[in-house]
Nucleic acid binder design. Structure first.
Lengths: 250, 250
DNA sequence: AGGTTGTGTCCAGTATAACGGACAAACATC
DNA sequence: GATGTTTGTCCGTTATACTGGACACAACCT
């Protein structure tokens, strides 16, 4: 008789576990981890204990739940320090948030999703900021319009999952409209979106391009939707300038 | 016949691999990884490919070497966001580096070693800063004197490995002298060390304590050794104040 | 040219990691 | 206080992840 359950590799379990924690973004009970990843309880305890020992995970809330441990922070810092673009972008993003007083970010693609790599909150009382490493549909973002501007229209249609054109509130972005915005953003050297994922925010983004002109990442500001046109125009110039300098620096 | 080689678990291999990359702090060739972790080449390729797929690792330098990938950064950010003390310390460290213009850090223990958790460079032309997550002997640091001040002298002797009292340049810190400095730091509410790991820098540190008075972490400044006594005194007050506020905030 | 060293892939065998199921103890819920 | 749920640990079994060795190819050196 063949078993319906597959005997999974430890590595795959670990990857699944950390991925699930990243999704939940909050400490999780071990039992729940087992259920969510469909791991036998005996196995989960074995693995989690090993990961806690290595400080990849940490027991929380009086030992009831687990979440990421300090080792992840150390490894993550090593990653940030090892990528030239990110190292310089870190200084830029800090400088922009500082000078302009609004939330500044470095954004990029992870597969066919948009992702925030760096986020530096501005000086506002009620800060607007995003979670790092959370995948978001490309059409929901200003940066997304720049990040696919090396693709031909048909390639974009193929690249972006159809469901991703549906916004959180149920509205759907027409694909043709999106393609037009991509072309316009490429032409203008920046992108702007307003009230897309929520009703209150506007995103302004400028590209960072490699030698071949491909958009590797974007720098952007996240500002309240009621920001005056003049201020937005100034910010766009600041972003374009910063993006251009980082593009030259390769 | 019993084999001398042990068949290792995938998980343990992965932990070893990332730990090695963290030690080297630079992209590493796969062959070297295999040698350093004593992993069979067929196994290393299998594992590394899986980790690259999960974006835990990334191929670098035209595919010749591997290093940490973006997933580590995402997980690390989740960790930072999940720890109250670190979240508030991040704002403090940024504020201090900003206001005073010198490199500010949050430091803590990892087992019986000192470790830098957060590092925010100051405004100097030649920046003094440390690598995050690198283990350093406790006696080499100002913060170390505060981080063990809940231990009795005998406990400190037992806790700190004897070799750790030897400095990089060969000098040895007398254990009795160290114990006296620990007591003095506890009394004074701050610690200062000068020209310990190198000849040019002075470290100033203040404790962050939990409700029971135990030092959980320290905030500190790293400054040139020739900084005037007056300036140092001012900085110490700033640090003590900041540490006190974070202690109250639990 | 030949020799040495490193890289990446493939395959068959077996040591063992992952599994299922059972257990007591700790918590909830009614 | 009776009943259900969750937690953490233990153990014998077996599917397979890890292994060693072989292979072709590239990049070096003498």
């Amino acid at each position: 008789m063949t078993h319906t359950t597959v005997r999974a590799r430890g590595i795959d379990r670990v990857i699944e576990i950390l991925d699930y924690l990243h999704d939940r973004r909050t400490p999780v009970r071990i039992g729940e981890l087992a259920r969510a990843t469909r791991t036998p309880r005996s196995t989960i305890y074995e693995i989690v204990n090993r990961l806690v020992e290595a400080r990849w995970l940490e027991l929380r809330d009086g030992e009831g739940t687990v979440f990421f441990g300090p080792a992840m922070h150390y490894y993550g810092s090593n990653y940030l320090d090892s990528v030239d673009l990110i190292r310089t972008a870190r200084l830029e993003v800090t400088r922009l948030a500082e000078q302009v007083g609004e939330t500044a970010q470095l954004c990029s693609l992870d597969g066919n999703k948009y992702i925030v790599m760096l986020n530096e909150p501005g000086r506002r009382m009620f800060r607007i900021s995003s979670d790092i490493g959370v995948k978001v549909p490309i059409p929901w973002t200003a940066s997304g319009r720049l990040l696919v501007d090396h693709l031909k229209p048909d390639e974009v249609r193929e690249f972006v999952p159809p469901d991703d054109f549906r916004l959180p509130d149920g509205r759907t972005i027409p694909v043709d409209g999106f393609l037009a915005e991509v072309a316009a953003a490429r032409e203008a050297g920046f992108a702007r979106t307003s009230a897309l994922v929520d009703r209150f925010t506007t995103c302004l983004a400028a590209p960072i391009r490699d030698a071949s002109g491909r958009c590797l990442a974007t720098i952007c500001f996240v500002v309240p939707a009621d920001t005056t046109a003049e201020l937005q125009a100034e910010m766009i110039e600041v972003l374009k300038d910063s993006g251009r300098r980082m593009s030259i620096a390769l």
